[in-house]
Design a protein around this nucleic acid. Structure first.
Lengths: 300, 300
DNA sequence: TAGGGTCATGACAATATGTAATGACCTTAG
DNA sequence: CTAAGGTCATTACATATTGTCATGACCCTA
């Protein structure tokens, strides 16, 4: 007869520590969770495994014997699991991200991921267009939008704060001091972010400044590169341009950042439960995003 | 690293059978449940364990190796569990029932329980009064009432159908043909079921027949015994008197059974989760109740 | 006796697991 | 070559299990 296995595992840990609190710490849950699991196991077996009295916690003699017997089972399981996960037969984690996100943020930080998780192999593809989980067989994707897609689970990465940016040279040359000065320069657009200029201009109540003139690029990386080269003024995603802004390669204009109700999210299909590796990647992403939000000047 | 244990167990079983459907049967769940558990485990490990294709199910080579390694762990666990449960240190299952239920139904069927569950020891106490789980430290109780008690979980056993009964001798002697004939005999009462006569008489619209005369016993067993002896007419719980009625020891009168909105329940305190043994007893109880409801003439 | 540690408990939230209904696919029998 | 009956997967949903937070009771130490 197989007892409830999670309680059994909890028992193994708690018996090693002779402390529910420390077992809770090891298993990264709270102490009451341990208490309940043990109660469940004792209830199932019909036997007290721990003696809880004056001087803290002790195993009963049956508990001691039981723990002695089952402990090897968990060693076996842990070893076998480590073994199978190390076969290299493990599928690499497939991730799809936007070209711009990859170029401006992800790539420089990837080494840190490989250090933290040496045996997770990544397979990162990038695209400029939104992702359809049905077609693209990926485990995770970085998506831009409102955070709600049918059949898709998503967690926020960072909000979309936009502001015009240009090179310091252009700023100087064109004397961009007020909004009307925008008429003097090229406006740089990105195919998949056509709304950037209209939205920002609307936010500063000058939709009249929108012109059809200007250059359009198939990806924001290129648009931003053009801005760096001094070709014109682009509307930049501030989060992705922290480094350029911090080191002066790009200058934000008019002191008018605008936060849209859109954001970048990590997303995955709701039906498939997230694997261990995918979960690790999501955690790493979130932690790194937080880092770079916290220390703007040391973006990486 | 410890993988999700329930999925792991399911994997062990499924790998033995090389069939999700048969594994489902062994574990007494449905096939989709197995499918999902395996998916979860594969997701966690990042490795396919089964090959599902044309010719049914096969283990991948990693799956085969993995199963070979973990199988012993479950053998160990099963053995250790059997061992600890057989130490005899197991607390007996404490059950409290009404004296009448014990005498008229439970005791004759207990041998069948011991046969079915040879290593569950029972500690049955009986009482005539309702149970307070706070005070009486019992695992299970058979309770009579409406099925709702604060902090108590309960499952229906059988409904309360009552009807006057007496011995065939008294029936003949007193010529009990119609309701008014009740005036000619003693009415037998039970302390804890004082409402039996009033309720039944109300049901047949003759509350006027209720008299203070008659004899009262501290337990229904005694009341029924008195009825068997021909002392008078009692209101009987038909479910508990099936045998007596079937073999003619007692005769139901006036062909007017009355079903009250009350019943016997198995009950247990909501906070403590039911142990394995308690669960077994509840299942056995319910099955036996169903049996005896189905075959009235072979009550045991 | 106050402070800090232990485990237990009740109410509730989150997650995991199970189900029913159904579909796609393969094998076998007619 | 279908039709029947088996396989597993998938969806939408229900239920059970597990975990949390906020406590409380108790014991130890200072």
């Amino acid at each position: 007869m197989i007892p409830p296995l999670n309680p059994l595992h909890v028992f193994d840990v708690a018996a090693r520590h002779l402390s529910f609190t420390r077992a809770a710490a090891e298993l990264r849950v709270t102490q009451p969770a341990i208490s309940r699991q043990i109660t469940t196991l004792e209830g199932f077996l019909g036997i007290r495994l721990f003696e809880r009295d004056k001087h803290g916690l002790r195993l009963t003699s049956e508990g001691e014997e039981f723990q002695r017997q089952i402990a090897p089972a968990f060693r076996i399981i842990a070893n076998a699991t480590a073994g199978v996960m190390a076969t290299g037969k493990a599928e690499p984690l497939k991730i799809r991200v936007y070209t711009t996100f990859a170029a401006k943020w992800l790539i420089t930080r990837l080494p840190s991921f490989y250090v933290a998780y040496p045996n997770i192999r990544l397979n990162i593809s990038n695209t400029v267009a939104p992702i359809d989980f049905e077609k693209d067989k990926v485990d995770l994707a970085v998506q831009f939008g409102a955070g709600k897609w049918p059949g898709v689970e998503a967690e926020l990465l960072f909000k979309d704060v936009i502001q015009p940016i240009c090179s310091p040279a252009l700023l100087k040359r064109a004397r961009l001091a007020e909004l009307d000065d925008l008429r003097k320069v090229q406006l740089l657009h990105s195919h998949y972010r056509r709304a950037d200029w209209p939205d920002w201009l609307m936010a500063v109540k000058r939709p009249d400044l929108l012109t059809d003139a200007g250059v359009s690029f198939p990806s924001s990386v290129l648009t931003y590169q053009a801005a760096v080269e001094g070709v014109g003024v682009a509307v930049g995603q501030l989060f992705l341009l922290r480094k350029e802004i911090a080191d002066g390669t790009l200058v934000p204009l008019f002191n008018a950042p605008f936060e849209r109700p859109l954001a970048h999210y990590v997303a995955w299909p709701r039906n498939r439960p997230l694997g261990r590796k995918a979960r690790s990647f999501v955690h790493w992403l979130q932690a790194k995003i937080e880092d770079s939000a916290a220390s703007p000047d040391r973006a990486y």
